[in-house]
């Protein structure tokens, strides 16, 4: 009886041991302190749906954050970033695979001090059974299609109408145009 009690107590007290998913990963390093290559099978889910049961069609059609429920351990992984070094998230990369089983490769970000756990940077993805990997870099193409009036030279984030409208109103620092003006005069 004591052995059973001790076993139960140990099981309950033990923290979940992080599994190693780096085997076979071909993810490129981004030189981040907490990066760990991770390649695994998963199902693409609408995180709001997964947690709360609020489930619109097609995972919200791009308006919601999407997640990966890892097949090996049922852990919900949150891809925060796609493969482009351009301030772009992972939703548009995952959306074509809503509800499907996929294989992904990328970087897990682990930083206990900041609470980073199961945060992921997606680099490549393929539907289960497919041989060809797809690069997670379609965000800028989707943005260009949705913002034809912003076509032009330079990076998307310098041309984004919503961003530019807010900067015009509140400045680069967000503290108002007068604060911006004084800072810029001093800084450059």
């Amino acid at each position: 009886m004591k052995v059973f009690m001790m076993g139960a107590a140990l099981c309950l007290a033990m923290p979940a041991v992080a599994q190693d998913f780096s085997a076979g990963s071909e993810a490129n390093s981004w030189g981040l302190a907490g990066e760990v290559p991770a390649r695994f099978d998963a199902t693409v889910v609408d995180i709001l749906c997964e947690l709360s049961g609020d489930c619109p069609e097609v995972c919200g059609g791009g308006a919601r954050q999407l997640g990966l429920v890892r097949s090996a351990d049922d852990v919900l992984v949150f891809p925060n970033k796609n493969g482009q070094p351009l301030f772009t998230g992972a939703v548009q990369e995952l959306l074509p695979y809503c509800g499907q089983e996929v294989e992904v490769d990328g970087l897990m970000i682990v930083d206990e001090a900041l609470g980073a756990q199961n945060i992921y940077q997606l680099q490549t993805i393929r539907a289960k059974g497919e041989s060809e990997w797809v690069k997670a870099n379609r965000w800028t193409q989707v943005w260009a299609e949705e913002n034809p009036e912003a076509a032009g030279e330079g990076e998307w984030f310098r041309r984004d109408p919503q961003v530019n409208a807010l900067i015009e109103k509140e400045g680069y620092l967000g503290l108002g145009l007068e604060v911006d003006e004084a800072f810029i005069a001093d800084w450059f």
Binding site: Q65, F78, N80, K81, L86, F87, T88, G89, A90, V91, Q92, W139, F157, D160, Q162, V163, L166, I167, Y172, L173, G174
Partner: peptide, 14 residues
């Protein structure tokens, strides 16, 4: 980090 926060928010980063 305000401008970068705007870029990331517009870019769909959580």
């Amino acid at each position: 980090h305000h401008t970068c926060a705007l870029w990331c928010s517009a870019g769909g980063i959580p």
